[in-house]
């Protein structure tokens, strides 16, 4: 019995060195050599300023920016140091309340909106979803164009440019990266 416990300790030590030290070190070495951009978090840098990550959404509420998914992270939305979904059940009144608030905000800024894509009124699983659907971007084009006093066609073309199709044409679904789109809008017209 004692022999088995001794062996267990030795095995755990050996496995710790192998799978807890050498394995992550090897992955880090390959990652930093082959794909340094991704390995460090796919960061977006402008000049010497870190703007964010291509993979991580940010909170937008001004009319001149496209809005992303709702975010349930605390204490502020899109807190990338504490990811979280809302975990609201389908019958939870808070689910409907959150959706209503977003719908009201959308309609207040652009009363012509009637049908609203579901991804615009629901919280993402991570609270950090960087994407919205193409339809969700389209319903916001008029608002953004009006707020920026530019032609809706210009905004709509920018949305098309920033639409990522389904990967390899068939995996997942198309989407628009909200942060990248808004950064591009600011570059077009600060």
């Amino acid at each position: 019995m004692w022999k088995q416990l001794q062996t267990s300790i030795l095995v755990l030590l050996v496995m710790t060195i192998l799978t807890g030290v050498l394995y992550p070190m090897a992955v880090t070495m390959f990652a930093q050599t082959l794909f340094p951009h991704q390995a460090n978090g796919s960061l977006i840098v402008q000049g010497d300023k870190l703007v964010g990550s291509e993979q991580i959404g940010q909170s937008f509420s001004e009319a001149k920016y496209f809005w992303g998914r709702l975010s349930a992270t605390a204490p502020v939305p899109y807190n990338a140091a504490a990811s979280s979904g809302s975990n609201l059940g389908p019958l939870n009144p808070a689910l409907v309340e959150n959706a209503k608030q977003r719908i009201d905000a959308l309609k207040q800024a652009d009363s012509a909106i009637d049908s609203i894509p579901v991804d615009l009124v629901t919280a993402s699983g991570s609270g950090l979803d960087p994407h919205i659907s193409v339809e969700a971007a389209q319903v916001q084009v008029n608002r953004v164009a009006t707020a920026r006093k530019i032609d809706a066609k210009v905004v709509s073309d920018l949305v098309k440019q920033h639409t990522q199709p389904a990967q390899w044409g068939f995996l997942g679904q198309a989407g628009v990266n909200v942060l990248e789109l808004n950064v591009a809008l600011d570059q077009l017209q600060p």
Partner: peptide
């Protein structure tokens, strides 16, 4: 409420 699409919450 006029929302279109399946269950995207979470």
């Amino acid at each position: 409420l006029g929302v279109v699409g399946g269950n995207m919450e979470g």
